[in-house]
Design a protein around this nucleic acid. Structure first.
Length: 662
RNA sequence: GCCCGGGUAGCUCAGUGGCAGAGCAGCUCACUCGUAAUGAGCAGGUCAGGGGUUCAAAUCCCCUCUCGGGCUCCA
């Protein structure tokens, strides 16, 4: 055997070195000393460490903790799960099993859906497979051979047939057939026998015992290839991490996230509830939630007026003919509550406010001199959201939109959209939300029956919005097919503090309703022209926005939003009157103070105020009274003693006015 | 809407066919206290609702409502 050699380049973030290796060298031999390296990017392609080098390659090590490395770890763990499922449930058919954010899933077609106890059995089996230390071994197969080897796996057969048209395959499935050639990964036992194999693009960990820490999280059903007309498969979600500590940290993060769930905090802080007696997806606001809601509304109403909006009011129900005019029937009827028969007419609760605002516009002749004409209200709307999607305050059936409609000339449209976007962003910032991105929702050209209007009008509308969205400099995500039936939209997707995103503010460009309602204005040249209307909700819905705020602040609101701003705590009964005296002054300035005159001990009162997440505890005892002062304790345990009364009040007032967090 | 899992006191939960339970919250009484739970007592339930099996059902079966997780949907 010749001892021929050649040169390859190893590149890492900062450096690049050439090494001479002998023919037949595999990638892992370059990283023998580095157990954290689990794969390699070779000439730009992710490869297994068993990849055979032929000379001249540029090789980047992939560590298990890198983004690619985590995906590989999780994808390999998904394979181990699938193997475990088929060992325990031999009749199970394989779906797909991709890595996802923080974990992975694998879909299976099984006769009986998995139950929670199955997860424990599967975890035990997976640990055995990991211990057996099987090798992940890649091989390329021809289509014909693949059909033979997967003849008992109908879903894999379907994917093989779809190879190369990955856009049609469905989310996640490119892990199976995303490459240019079909590959199979064999799981090979230490005795050389093949324990299991799966259609897969790879790459994978070298062996199963390179999975340091994993956990199966939950089961769920999922439609095959994401289409509700297809069969539902049983999905198992899991997570995997480079170390046991990171797994523990991840599980702890999830626990922390549950503590700030707005449904839980709503109950604990007595903000709102969802009584069965009223119906699913319909919230009631308790006094403390009512304070937050009112402060939000007062503030946003004031800001609208400052921005040139005219406050209007419209009813909750209307004869349904109005929605034929607007196009909601039939385009939107599935999402509307069914009609009520009344005095020979069918009435509907409104799912949107725009038709009503159009009637205000139409109530008299309009001149170009009035435009932009901006109507705004808190419109209570009702939508028949499917039962399975209702979720606390963030997905409800009855909500209030801070809804506006700007009627503009086509020439003014761009400027008005810019104005609205800036307005929206300033409001988000006032509420302390700064983690969001924009989404641009356009028409799906293949589903024209879901949208009204001409191609040309849609092109115009989409280009106006797209330009402004791009000019904003914010992250912009495309959402093809997500437009309203009457026009495209820009929306703000805000992240709550635990990373979930919600559609909040929307700005929609609508050329359809002005035409359907016959809206017009008299132009400077005396002709009658059709306005464009721009729909916009700044919070989106007050309910959803409040839900996101509760989670963002974990219930510890900045003083201007806090239901109780100051909790008065007397050290003993004899200090109560002094507190009430101070409370009179605070109440006069509009500061919300409550005094705890229960016969709890002072320590208990502090605990209660702490659990209620009140921003200022005003504690008063003999020493404070003597000094004509108060002591202020904050939620983080910080305390300032003996602050003169006037100074304490102005300090609190300043924080409220500045909308600061304390 | 679909799949799975839940629903026991205001809240969090125990209770696998044989008398309905605990902690917290609530109420009463005592204590008047300087930084995250004072003590004692009392009250609180159509075990989601309806139907069935059984001598006997919170417990087993069926239907409905509802909540949770996920999928689909999401102006």
């Amino acid at each position: 055997m010749e001892n021929e050699s050649f040169v390859v380049t190893i590149r890492s973030d900062e450096s690049s070195t050439s090494v001479e290796v002998s023919v037949g060298t595999k990638a892992f031999e370059l990283f023998k000393e580095r157990s954290e390296v689990i794969a390699a990017r070779i000439d730009g392609e992710l490869r297994d460490l068993s990849h055979l080098l032929t000379g001249g390659e540029v090789i980047e090590p992939i560590t298990i903790s890198s983004r690619d490395g985590l995906n590989i770890l999780r994808h390999s763990t998904a394979h181990v799960l699938a193997q475990a499922v088929q060992e325990l449930f031999p009749a199970a058919k394989l779906g797909i099993g991709p890595p996802i954010e923080d974990g992975f899933y694998y879909d299976f077609d099984v006769e009986t859906p998995f139950v929670p106890e199955d997860l424990e059995k599967l975890e035990t089996k997976m640990r055995q497979i990991i211990k057996r230390n099987q090798r992940f071994s890649r091989r390329v197969v021809a289509d014909e051979d693949a059909y033979g080897q997967f003849k008992n796996e109908p879903y894999k057969m379907e994917l093989i047939g779809l190879k190369g048209s990955s856009s049609q395959v469905g989310e996640g499935a490119d892990m199976e057939v995303g490459g240019s050639e079909l590959t199979v990964y064999d799981n090979i036992e230490r005795d050389g026998s093949v324990a299991w194999y799966d259609l897969c693009r790879g790459p994978h960990l070298p062996t199963t015992n390179r999975i340091p820490a994993f956990k199966l999280m939950r089961t769920a059903a999922a439609y095959w290839r994401g289409d509700q007309h297809n069969k539902q498969l049983q999905r198992v979600y899991g997570t995997a991490w480079p170390t046991k500590e990171e797994l523990a940290t991840h599980l702890d993060r999830i626990e922390q996230a549950e503590l700030r769930d707005h449904r839980r905090l709503g109950r604990e802080l007595d903000l709102y509830s969802f009584p069965d007696e009223i119906g699913s997806g319909l919230a009631i606001f308790h006094p403390k939630g009512g304070v937050i809601k009112r402060v939000m509304e007062d503030y946003v109403r004031q800001r609208h007026i400052e921005e040139g909006f005219l406050y209007v009011g419209t009813p909750h129900v209307t004869k349904e003919e109005l929605f034929h005019t607007s196009g909601h029937l039939p385009y939107y009827s599935e999402t509307m509550f069914p009609p009520m028969e009344f005095e020979g007419s069918k009435y509907r609760v409104k799912p949107m406010n725009c038709p009503m605002h159009n009637l205000i516009y139409k109530s008299r002749a309009r001149s170009y001199r009035e435009l932009p004409l901006r109507f705004f209200e808190f419109g209570s709307i009702y939508r028949n959201e499917k039962s399975g999607v209702i979720h606390g305050l963030t997905r409800v059936r009855g909500m209030t939109q801070d809804d506006s409609h700007s009627y503009v000339t086509p020439e003014q449209a761009g400027e008005e959209v810019t104005h609205l976007l800036n307005f929206v962003l300033s409001l988000l910032s006032d509420f302390g939300l700064n983690d969001y991105y924009l989404e641009m929702s356009t028409r799906d050209d293949s589903k024209k029956d879901k949208f009204i209007g001409t191609d040309e009008d849609w092109r115009t509308a989409e280009s106006v919005l797209a330009k402004i969205a791009e000019d904003s400099g914010l992250t912009l995500v495309a959402d093809p097919g997500g437009a309203a039936f009457y026009g495209p939209k820009i929306s703000v997707q805000a992240r709550d503090a635990i990373g979930r995103t919600w559609q909040m503010s929307t700005i929609q460009y609508d050329f359809n309703q002005p035409a359907r309602f016959g809206l017009e204005y008299q132009a400077a040249d005396g002709t009658r022209k059709q306005p464009v209307m721009i729909h916009s909700a700044k919070f989106g819905s007050i309910e959803r926005f409040m839900g996101v705020l509760v989670e963002h602040y974990a219930g510890a609101f900045p003083p201007w939003l806090a239901p109780v701003q100051v909790q008065g705590i007397p050290v003993a009964d004899r200090h109560v009157d002094y507190l009430y005296e101070i409370a009179r002054t605070l109440t006069k300035s509009g500061i919300r103070i409550e005094i705890d005159e229960s016969d709890d001990r002072m320590q208990k009162k502090i605990r209660n105020a702490q659990l209620a997440k009140v921003p200022y505890m005003m504690i008063v005892g003999d020493q404070d009274i003597e000094a004509n002062a108060v002591s202020i304790r904050y939620r983080d345990g910080r305390q300032e003693n003996s602050i003169p009364i006037a100074e304490a009040i102005s300090m609190i007032q300043r924080a409220i006015d500045a909308r600061e967090q304390v």
